[in-house]
Amino acid sequence: MIINNLKLIREKKKISQSELAALLEVSRQTINGIEKNKYNPSLQLALKIAYYLNTPLEDIFQ
């Protein structure tokens, strides 16, 4: 099972779900679904998340 630290990292960087969704060009519901482990992001989306949060991919999804 993948450990998902997206919410923790996003909140630590003081970025809202809506702000991150806008940067990634996805819906806020997509971010919410990823954070609640209801949706697994594509590799492309996971890499974009890591880029915009300036955090290694391995720290977000373990």
Rank of each mutant, 00 (worst) to 15 (best):
M1W: 12
M1K: 12
I2D: 06
I2V: 14
I3K: 14
I3P: 09
I3G: 11
I3H: 13
I3Y: 09
I3C: 14
N4M: 05
N4P: 04
N4Y: 05
N4H: 05
N5M: 07
N5Q: 07
N5E: 03
L6P: 00
K7W: 05
K7T: 07
K7F: 06
L8G: 09
I9Q: 04
I9V: 10
R10K: 01
R10S: 01
R10I: 04
E11V: 10
E11M: 14
E11D: 08
K12A: 14
K12L: 14
K13H: 10
K13I: 07
K13D: 02
K14M: 10
K14E: 08
K14H: 13
I15N: 01
I15T: 04
I15L: 13
S16Q: 05
S16V: 03
S16T: 14
S16P: 05
S16A: 06
Q17M: 11
Q17C: 04
Q17L: 11
Q17G: 04
S18M: 13
S18Q: 12
S18I: 11
S18D: 13
S18A: 14
S18G: 12
E19H: 12
E19I: 07
E19A: 14
E19L: 08
L20C: 03
L20A: 00
L20W: 02
L20T: 01
L20S: 00
L20Y: 02
L20F: 07
A21K: 01
A21C: 04
A21M: 03
A22W: 07
A22N: 10
L23W: 14
L23Y: 14
L23E: 06
L23C: 09
L23N: 07
L24E: 00
L24Q: 00
L24I: 08
L24F: 01
L24W: 01
E25D: 13
E25C: 15
E25L: 12
E25S: 13
E25Y: 10
E25F: 09
V26S: 01
V26Q: 02
V26P: 00
S27N: 08
S27A: 06
S27V: 04
R28Y: 09
R28S: 11
R28G: 06
R28P: 14
Q29N: 13
Q29T: 11
Q29P: 05
Q29E: 15
T30D: 05
T30K: 07
T30R: 07
T30P: 01
I31W: 01
I31D: 00
I31L: 14
I31G: 00
I31T: 01
I31N: 00
N32E: 15
N32I: 15
N32Q: 15
I34S: 00
I34A: 01
E35C: 04
E35S: 02
E35H: 03
K36E: 15
K36N: 15
K36M: 15
K36Y: 07
K36C: 12
N37G: 15
N37W: 09
N37T: 07
K38S: 10
K38D: 09
K38M: 14
Y39H: 10
N40Y: 15
N40S: 14
N40L: 15
N40Q: 15
P41L: 09
P41K: 01
S42H: 07
S42V: 06
L43E: 08
L43W: 13
L43H: 13
L43T: 09
Q44E: 13
Q44S: 13
Q44R: 13
L45I: 07
L45A: 02
A46I: 06
A46W: 14
A46P: 02
A46K: 15
A46S: 07
A46M: 15
L47D: 04
L47K: 12
L47S: 08
K48V: 04
K48S: 06
K48G: 05
K48H: 05
I49S: 00
I49P: 00
Y51S: 07
Y51P: 00
Y51Q: 08
L53E: 00
L53Y: 02
L53P: 01
L53N: 00
N54I: 05
N54L: 07
N54P: 02
T55F: 05
T55V: 12
P56L: 06
P56R: 11
P56F: 06
L57V: 13
L57W: 07
L57Q: 04
E58C: 12
E58W: 10
E58N: 11
D59P: 02
D59L: 12
I60R: 01
I60L: 10
I60A: 02
F61I: 04
F61G: 02
F61H: 01
Q62F: 14
Q62L: 12
Q62K: 11
